[in-house]
Nucleic acid binder design. Sequence first.
DNA 1: GTCTATACACAGATAGAC
DNA 2: GTCTATCTGTGTATAGAC
Lengths: 207, 207
Amino acid sequence: MTDGETTPAETDQSTGERLLAGAAVLFREQGYAGTTTRQLAALVGIQNASLYHHVGGKEDLLYRLCMDTLDSVAATFTSAVAAGTDPLETLGTVARGYLDQALNDRDRHATMLTEIRSLSPQRQAEVIGRRDKNVAIVQELVAKAQRAGQVRKDIDAKYLTLALFNLLNWSIFWFNPEGELDHTAIGNLLWTVFSDGAAKGDSKRKR
Amino acid sequence: MTDGETTPAETDQSTGERLLAGAAVLFREQGYAGTTTRQLAALVGIQNASLYHHVGGKEDLLYRLCMDTLDSVAATFTSAVAAGTDPLETLGTVARGYLDQALNDRDRHATMLTEIRSLSPQRQAEVIGRRDKNVAIVQELVAKAQRAGQVRKDIDAKYLTLALFNLLNWSIFWFNPEGELDHTAIGNLLWTVFSDGAAKGDSKRKR
DNA sequence: GTCTATACACAGATAGAC
DNA sequence: GTCTATCTGTGTATAGAC
């Protein structure tokens, strides 16, 4: 505990970390292009010029934000897959874990999801590649659950995976920390809709 | 057919309409703040200064884009509700219609969904109010389907509605017109997931 | 309705003292 | 590691001729 802790607290963070956290907040609120380095510096309590001692430039902040976020997600996915045995159950764990992470760090996740376009083509490709790796983990899990007879096979695993991410990703934009439902409740709710559907009865179901 | 047609074709459109369409493309690709009036003028084939003969300013474009899009959605919702009888069936029509509209006009929809934050507080509130009206129409439909015993009641209509929009909205960001699935196929697929769920069998279902 | 020319503000980034 | 001062490019928007 000497240095470089990843404490969520805003105190005793290095200036570099506070810049990243501040950038996430501003990028989410105003977009990458709409945020100025002066605003960010002011938020962290330094002058605009001092920022360049810590970061190569504005784009570096976005790049690191995206990569760090995707790495965290990858860690969650990998460990859940390693620990799980039942495919469908593991998929549920993965989905809930992803949502929890996304809602806990909405600034970084929202930025990663919407501001990739602002990166240079090279970095954009790099970030998208890493994101696709994460998606592939989930898609493989969906396919495994299909093979195990737990998930419907009339829809390709690719599209079931996209549907699942649809369901989870958009929550970041309406979730309200002061709302009636917390991360877990929303995670359970969305997972229920994904796995069991909204309809009641077997009116439209063919089994 | 004298003038002012809303033809989808890019020809014989008024400069004002072409500016709106161009703005939607650029705002989606680069974000509102990341787009310059010079780029937009160049895209339409006029000088930057000429733009101000047609529009009050850059923000006006975003504002009109958002309002127009939400009005189109409202029209779709209202007519589907008026024409439908069975609540669940109507909800399906509404969901598919919304997705079709969104995928047909991805530039405008994506801009409306992600760039509201760039509007002035007043206009932002106005746009959000109009958007919430649209959501309310769907939520009322969900509630009606619940009362009719067609939709599960253990999840509040509010959250089922949010889940449905999650499922639909995020598609705009990954849909590929050259992909294997067209609007209708994706609409059917997502509606199936929403109503029936991804799981097979009644493993986790309590009825 | 479109143009050229331009005003004015502010962006990202650097130089070099402390 | 932070500062002040500043460079340079570019943004939105206007003025006024055609």
